[in-house]
Write a protein that binds this DNA or RNA. Structure first.
Lengths: 107, 107
DNA sequence: ACGATAGGCAACCATTTGGTTGCATGTCAA
DNA sequence: TTGACATGCAACCAAATGGTTGCCTATCGT
């Protein structure tokens, strides 16, 4: 729910890789997500639980199998609510940069 | 330059706050960025240097003053290259979620 | 020239983080 | 029912992280 959890979840390359793999094939089990990852099953499980906590991954139990699904909503919210805020001022910010950096030709 | 550095830089709330403050008023000094932050000057300086390393902040020396400018480019790249990738499959992913979660009405 | 101002560097510290191993639990299949 | 499979829980560990303090350097104003 909190945006901070989403940012922190996205900060780790292994977790982004897990999201990538879910995007490539949605609804994978923990075991399935493990192979190719150079770490123990428990390490992967910890990463997945952080992704769950950030609501980036949603889970569906099916017997003894835990299927993991990518939830694109939080990423979309970051795009719209956070990045959008910077996007609005992007041209002005770039202008500031150019002005300040080019203004002093003696550096 | 690396996208990982950008993600990690964005993972800390204090650093996001610094970006917010630069967005509100671009080209501030370290001292100026310090007040309101509940930490030492050195702590803020460390955060700023991480933002610099991620190229999210660009710096311009002016005498003894170091002016900090927001660089919107890396955020924009994340929006386009990374979030865009998920955006493309967003409808499908949401469909997957709905299907799987609604399909089992007995949970 | 000198004090005050703006910032940098380095050592140190506590907590968090990413990982491990060992063991326990629940479910499927023969 | 029994063994194998899929996962969870907890203790533990090393390294990274976010913060501190103390001191040093450089520049501005008087």
């Amino acid at each position: 729910m909190s945006m901070d959890a989403v940012f922190k979840a996205l900060a780790d390359p292994s977790r982004r890789q897990l999201l990538d793999r879910l995007q490539a094939r949605n609804g994978q089990t923990l075991a399935s997500l493990c192979d190719g990852m150079e770490m123990s099953r428990q390490a992967v499980a910890k990463h997945l639980s952080q992704l769950e906590a950030a609501n980036l991954v949603v889970v569906q139990w099916h017997g003894r199998e835990k299927l993991h699904f990518l939830n694109p909503v939080p990423i979309n919210e970051i795009a719209e609510r956070w990045i959008g805020k910077y996007e609005r001022h992007r041209v002005q910010a770039l202008h500031d940069l150019k002005t300040k950096l080019e203004g002093n030709s003696d550096d």
